[in-house]
């Protein structure tokens, strides 16, 4: 906001209260209520306001308190933000950033524990980034604001509490580039958002058993950096996809289908997915934890993919 006067932010409680997750704390005091706008509880209206502001040359950052409330704003997101640049023949760019936290936190109930990335992935015209580290959250939010495309920044509620040194001077990789968080020759694990952290834990455990697992942090769900994934799968011949979202018709399904198309002749085992269960998230803490992938599930899946081959190779 300091670098560009056209950047504004708006949403519920982003101003006086500093954001439900404190991500906009202090901004109102610094930049004033014109650029940091508290809005009524009306997601479709203030997201639509963001669309209009973007059309008129501002770079609005709309914060929707959680992705669950984005369902109210779906008309503004899908019918307006995603379509206007196309339908206007490019006359109206859409330098709009919509940031929203999602994912299963701790016992917020089925309606407040959704991961709706698959819904948004299915909308042409939207770009979606899913940072897993504080550094990426910093880089990708800045890049999103710079972008002239409608961009969703999907953050994970539990990752808001991650602490890591953020290097503000470091050169950011392209916003949609996937990163190899760990390299191994036996199997490729593709994950995003919080599941990257779990995949890395799983890779540590597997390393002790002599299984070297590559962990790819997708960082972006639309577009997807296919080349990085394809290159890795062509080297390891085994692919495991981890997603917190429900398995059915999710991001993993898209990854699996496309990688199968592009890597078919390199696959030595069927691509496997470890994903959330296809159920509304249970409120009970233990059931909730059991409804999404845990580190041990990733470890077991990798073991199972490779197991029958070990010793023969």
């Amino acid at each position: 906001m300091a670098a560009d006067e056209s950047v504004i932010t708006l949403g519920e409680d982003v101003g006086l209260y500093g954001g439900t997750y404190r991500v906009t704390e202090g901004l109102m005091a610094k930049y004033g209520e014109w650029r940091v706008r508290d809005t009524p509880i009306s997601e479709n209206s203030f997201t639509g306001l963001g669309v209009g502001a973007a059309m008129l040359g501002l770079r609005p950052v709309v914060e929707i308190m959680t992705i669950n409330f984005a369902l109210f704003a779906i008309d503004a997101i899908i019918n307006m933000a995603a379509k206007i640049p196309f339908m206007s023949g490019g006359q109206f760019p859409m330098p709009l950033t919509i940031r929203m936290p999602g994912g299963i936190a701790r016992q917020l109930g089925a309606q407040h524990s959704q991961r709706l990335e698959h819904t948004l992935m299915n909308v042409p015209g939207l770009r979606i980034v899913v940072p897993a580290t504080p550094q990426d959250a910093y880089w990708q939010l800045r890049q999103a604001i710079h972008s002239d495309d409608a961009l969703i920044v999907l953050e994970h509620e539990l990752l808001y509490f991650t602490k890591e040194h953020v290097d503000e001077a470091a050169v950011a990789p392209p916003i949609h580039q996937a990163l190899l968080r760990r390299q191994g020759r036996d199997i490729t694990c593709i994950a995003y958002s919080r599941m990257v952290i779990l995949a890395l834990e799983a890779a540590d455990i597997l390393a002790k058993e002599g299984i070297a697992m590559t962990v790819i942090d997708l960082r972006s769900l639309a577009p997807i950096d296919w080349d990085t994934c394809v290159q890795s799968v062509q080297q390891t011949h085994h692919c495991l996809i981890v997603e917190e979202d429900c398995r059915f018709a999710g991001a993993g399904a898209e990854l699996s289908a496309t990688l199968q198309e592009r890597c078919f002749y390199f696959l030595d085992r069927p691509i496997q997915r470890v994903a959330g269960l296809d159920i509304p998230t249970p409120f009970n803490g233990q059931l909730e934890a059991a409804s999404i992938p845990r580190t041990e599930d990733i470890v077991n899946a990798a073991r199972q993919i490779l197991d029958t081959q070990r010793g023969q190779s």
Partner: peptide
């Protein structure tokens, strides 16, 4: 048919495979 045998400690072979 679920992707991971989360609550089923008795069946340690994940459904994935």
């Amino acid at each position: 048919p679920e992707p991971h045998a989360a609550a089923a400690d008795a069946a340690p072979v994940p459904a994935v495979v």
